[in-house]
Amino acid sequence: MSAHPSPATTADATTRRRAMAALALTVTFWSFNFVVGRAVAGDIPPLTLSFLRWLGALLIFLPFAWRHLRRDWPSLLRAWPKLLLMGLTSVAGYNTFVYLALERTTAINAVLLNATMPIVIAIMAAVAGVERMSRFQALGVAVSFGGVAYIVAGGNPAHLLSLQIGAGDLWILGATVCWGIYSVALRFKPAHVHPFALLAANMLVGMLALAPLAASEAIAGHLPVVTPATIAAVAYVAIFPSIIAYILWNWSVAAIGPNRAGLFMHLMPILTPLWSMLFLGERLGVHHLVGGIAILAGLVLTSRAPSARPAPPARHDDAPRRDR
């Protein structure tokens, strides 16, 4: 037996490393999105911010995706229920629910409840038969979630006992459910559809769903304040957390599965305070460092452990096979 790894094993290891790097970059963009959202909360209403985010993203991304979208449009139309589900849960659902939640709940509640996302993804993946959670993955989720809980409790676990579930907390729970559905639905995306076409179609579905909601805010007199800062904020959320992060997330889920990808969301309670310290003048406490070590340990446990059952192969009944 050769002591050298096989080409397939090397390729798999390389793919995992690239996916982990892509996920780390994705969560970096998303964590800074929270900081930007908080910075303009008083200047841009939440539904309007979500609509402007995806309108801008679609306008920027469409020139790059147009030829793929035009070619794959028949396949997308045949798979319209899947497309509708992905667009509503990711673009229209998750992001809007988060913006609404941050107006109605405390940061400690929002971050803790949002950190249940990897668990929600793992449960939904198991129920859908996409991916079974292994013991090491379950241990990684538990260790990482413990680190998140320690961070949001400010280093005092007794604070968790005083949490109260309110309307904002329910919005966050709804957001995690939306993202869990979307992450699992990615495994059943239309076959042979280019990733750019799929993302552009999801943007279009979500933007159309958000348009009447944003219009209701405008009719009620809640209009955005136009300043260089708000324009820059909309530009950032339209490009980095919307276009680049979604492309990296979709590829990573396909490469390593929703369970492992979902656990990287636990990096947000580390990165968001870091951005707040650098750009908002907030202080980074010891509890962030202790909790961060636990989160990283959970990531290592989960990323190194093989899945108990691989995902089923992609279905090919949505479009005829053809060369790309």
Score class of each variant (00 low, 15 high):
S6F: 12
P7K: 11
A13F: 12
T14M: 12
R18G: 05
A21T: 11
A22H: 06
L25F: 14
V36T: 02
A41C: 13
L47M: 13
S50K: 03
L52W: 01
W54T: 05
L55Y: 11
R67K: 15
H68G: 13
P74N: 15
S75F: 04
S75D: 07
L76E: 01
P81T: 11
L85I: 13
V91L: 11
Y94C: 07
Y99N: 06
T105V: 13
T106F: 03
A107Y: 00
I108T: 13
N109K: 07
N109R: 10
N114S: 09
T116E: 09
I121P: 01
A125W: 00
V127L: 15
E131Y: 02
R135A: 14
F136Y: 12
V141N: 03
A153P: 10
G155T: 06
A158P: 12
A158Q: 15
H159G: 15
L160N: 06
L161F: 12
S162H: 14
L163H: 05
D169L: 08
L173C: 09
A175L: 01
W179M: 09
G180P: 06
G180D: 07
Y182Q: 05
V184D: 00
A185P: 01
A191M: 06
H192R: 14
A200M: 07
A200R: 00
A201Y: 02
M207H: 05
L208R: 05
L208A: 07
L210T: 02
A215H: 10
A215F: 10
S216N: 13
L223Q: 15
P224R: 08
P224C: 12
V226Y: 12
P228G: 14
A238K: 00
I239E: 00
A245F: 01
S252N: 09
V253N: 01
I256V: 15
I256K: 02
G257I: 04
N259C: 10
A261E: 02
H266I: 04
I270L: 11
T272V: 11
T272A: 05
W275P: 02
F279H: 10
G281N: 08
G285K: 00
L289H: 11
V290E: 03
G291S: 14
I295R: 00
I295W: 03
L296F: 09
L299D: 00
V300D: 13
S303H: 04
R304W: 15
P306C: 12
S307R: 05
H316Q: 15
D318R: 07
R321V: 13
R324Y: 15
